[in-house]
């Protein structure tokens, strides 16, 4: 595989992956945003979907309008003098997610503390002490992969994922953090729960968080969490 970047990689009859970077970095986001904007203009109605992720964009197009070669040629032109979209990043929304950190809804707090050598209070402090960027959405509608967490919070995924993680659960794994927009299976370490509505089909833009957004978890008391509509039902662990 050639290491020269950017690189176009075939992704089926109606897709190209544009690889802009090799490594995860917050600075990637402004380049990816710029390319996504250019694609929307250049492909117009022939564009089907753009899936941004950490280092790449997957572009899918209508193969009745464009051949793969024609789509590649368009992308090559767009890459030619690409500049990072710093306005897009500055315009990336800032979100504060009220989060109740508590072992009843964050059943991995204690184990994470043990694994990282921190106290539970320190885990909460470190996790809520910095803001994160949204690198990608995936896994489930509105599920935002955010990072990077403090190296001191680096924890592997669970060996065996849980069958059901409650909606709003705030979690970490491998220097990333996320909040579950719906109850799904999940293998991340649960620290608490947010009352923010992360995915709402009634909302015009559906997902609260978008790639490039900035997110901060704000610790709130149980009372405040409940007052804002949070569900305090403890996670039931089946033996």
């Amino acid at each position: 595989m050639s290491d020269k970047l950017p690189r176009l990689e075939p992704a089926g009859l109606d897709g190209w992956i544009v690889r802009l970077f090799n490594d995860i970095d917050e600075a990637n986001l402004s380049w990816l945003a710029a390319l996504a904007n250019r694609c929307r203009t250049a492909f117009g109605d022939a564009l089907v979907d753009i899936v941004p992720s950490y280092t790449t964009l997957l572009i899918t197009f209508d193969p009745l309008s464009l051949s793969p070669a024609e789509a590649r040629d368009r992308l090559m032109v767009l890459l030619d003098d690409l500049e990072p979209d710093t306005s897009g990043v500055a315009g990336g929304q800032v979100h504060e997610l009220p989060t109740w950190y508590d072992p009843s809804v964050g059943p991995d707090l204690e184990r994470v503390a043990g694994q990282t050598g921190l106290t539970i209070e320190e885990v909460i402090q470190v996790h809520s002490g910095k803001s994160y960027r949204v690198f990608a959405l995936g896994f489930a509608p509105g599920f935002a992969f955010m990072g990077l967490t403090d190296p001191g919070l680096d924890c592997p995924r669970l060996d065996t994922p849980r069958q059901r993680v409650p909606v709003g659960s705030v979690a970490i794994a491998a220097r990333q953090t996320a909040a579950y927009p719906a109850a799904t299976p999940g293998g991340w370490n649960l620290l608490g729960r947010t009352c923010a509505r992360l995915f709402d089909r009634q909302r015009e833009d559906l997902s609260l968080l978008k790639v490039g957004d900035e997110v901060r978890f704000v610790p709130v008391s149980r009372e405040e969490f409940e007052r804002q509509g949070g569900d305090i039902t403890p996670l039931e662990e089946r033996p």
Partner: peptide, 10 residues
Amino acid sequence: LISEGINLGS
């Protein structure tokens, strides 16, 4: 790989 978009049929 670092996670990336997956097209139909991959």
